[in-house]
Structures are given as structure tokens and as C-alpha cells.
Amino acid sequence: MHSKERPERVRTLVVDDEPLARSNLIVLLGLHPEIELVGECGSGAEALSAIRELKPSLVFLDVEMPECDGFDVLEMLGRDLPHAVVFVTAYDKYALRAFDAGALDYLLKPFDNARFERALDRAKEKITQGRSSPRARESLVVKSAGQVSFLKVSEIDWIEASDYYSCLHVGTKSHLVRRSMAELDQELDQSIFCRIHRSTIVQLDRVRGLKLNEGGEYDVVLNNGTRLRLSRRYRAQLQSRLGSPGSWSES
């Protein structure tokens, strides 16, 4: 008699600079056999290394940490973002920014077991969906003037963060979608799109070249003349995607 195949366990990392807070989360996670605790970290810098090395699907991430906070961790991870991130903090002032950064949920300390269970259930559901449909997005749902339509992502020139939405620029038109930049960065085809700033994503085929601005930094110039700020953090990534620096137009 063959035994049933065991479901894949959820690789989970706990990040908090307070040892007691980490211990509490680890105890709660230990009640779930489907959770595999792959590590715990006491700082944002440790979290960056651990996430890239251990590749957890789920991360419980503290917001306020010295030197490198939870938002810095998400921003610097780029394409290494886990499937699900649950922010954990004692301060409710970060809630909206957490969701804008792509967090799945937001646990406000002190939280009870029932609230933790709801967050964990949401995370497991999202991870299961991601495993079953890992393909990059080909279209986005756009709501405008009471109508719902599907926009092909291949038509998008560039994307910018707009408060708690993202603004899709398509020719002379723009569309707001209730998606964070972090979510879009994860879901869009990385052979077509590239992040050039924490608030900006461009379609590579639309890039004409680079141009120095008055501050001595580079702007990305699109075929339609639009100029977008290029962050130093993303310059190397754009360079590798477009080719050697010598092939860039800087005029």
C-alpha cells in the first residue's frame, strides 16, 4: 500500500530584533506541521543574506530595526522577494506603507492567536496559488469610468507608484491599478520589464538611452521623450539588461 505524497512544507523565516518576539512567533509556527522554520534573524542585514540563501516562501518581518528596517529589506531584495511577507510591528503608523510595499498582512503587537492564524492562512493560500500558477502576468485588470477591461502588459510603456496604487502609462493614456510596485515587479516578465527606481518600472523596448541631469545623475530617456530618474541602486541591473555602457546613448 502506497502512502500519500506529503504536501510541500512552507519554508518560513522569522525576522525581529527582539529575541522574545522571535520566540513567540516560533512557538506559534511550531503548532503547524506544514511549516518548516528555516531560520531566524535579529537584523535587516541578516535577513537579506538569509532570504537570498535560504529562499523561504514566507517571512515574518519586523518593521523597526536598526540600520536596515523592514522596508529597506524588501526594497533591496528585488527579484528575491518571498512569495508572502507578513509585517510584524508594535506601531500601526506603518500599516498603509506596508501594504504599498507588497506585504500580504500586518500583525500589530501584541496580537492574539486568532489574528496570527488568519495571517498564516492568508500566507499559505497565496503561496499555494503562486506554486500552481507561477507564470508572469500577460494582462492587468483596469477599472475606468465604471468599466472593467484587460490591458495587455506588452502595451505598457512605464509604471510609476501613485500613493497606494500604481499608474500604468500607455502612450498618451494612464491607468491606475490597485497593485503595489513590489507586486508588479514580481509578477511582470523580467525579460521585458526592468525596475529603475523604487517608484518606477520601464519596458526595456521603450528605452532610447540615458542622459545626465543637472544633478549629475542619469535619467532614462524613453522613445517618446519621457525622462525618468534612474536610481543608483538599479543602475547596474539596467546596464546588464541593456548591454555594455558603451552601447548606451547619453545624448
Rank of each mutant, 00 (worst) to 15 (best):
K143D: 06
A103K: 05
V27G: 00
F150P: 00
P7M: 12
L81C: 08
D69K: 00
A98G: 15
S23T: 14
G225D: 08
N24Q: 12
V177G: 01
S43P: 04
G102Q: 04
V15A: 08
G44V: 10
A50M: 06
P66F: 05
R195H: 07
P56E: 11
G215K: 07
S49Y: 01
N24S: 08
P110T: 11
T128M: 08
R115V: 14
R232T: 13
V14W: 01
Y106E: 10
L242Y: 00
V14L: 02
L28K: 11
G243M: 11
H83Y: 14
R206D: 05
G146D: 09
S166M: 04
R206V: 10
P7C: 10
E5V: 11
L77V: 07
R122E: 14
A236P: 01
R97C: 04
P66L: 08
L74C: 00
L230F: 11
L176Y: 03
P56L: 09
A236N: 12
F87M: 15
L176C: 01
L204T: 14
M76H: 12
R229W: 01
D219F: 02
V202I: 15
Q237V: 13
D185T: 12
G225C: 02
P66E: 13
V177P: 04
R115Q: 14
L188Y: 06
S249N: 12
S49A: 15
D105M: 02
G30I: 13
S199V: 03
Y218D: 05
R115Y: 03
N24L: 12
H83R: 10
G246R: 08
G44Y: 04
P245T: 12
Y218N: 07
R9C: 03
A95P: 09
V38T: 13
S199D: 13
R233Q: 15
F116T: 10
L204K: 13
S240R: 15
V220I: 09
V38N: 02
L48H: 00
L37Q: 12
H32E: 15
P7T: 14
P66A: 13
A45C: 03
R241T: 06
D69E: 04
R198T: 10
T89L: 01
P19G: 07
I192G: 00
G44S: 07
Q237P: 00
M65V: 11
R229F: 06
E117V: 12
G225M: 00
Q190T: 11
P56Y: 08
R115D: 13
R137Y: 06
A136F: 09
R9D: 02
H175K: 03
L168N: 07
Y234S: 02
V38G: 02
D121R: 07
L58A: 06
T128R: 14
R233P: 04
H32M: 05
H197W: 05
E46K: 02
I192D: 05
R11G: 11
E138R: 15
F99M: 04
E214L: 08
L222G: 07
D69Q: 03
D100M: 05
N223V: 14
Y94N: 11
R79I: 08
P245Q: 09
Y94A: 05
L28F: 02
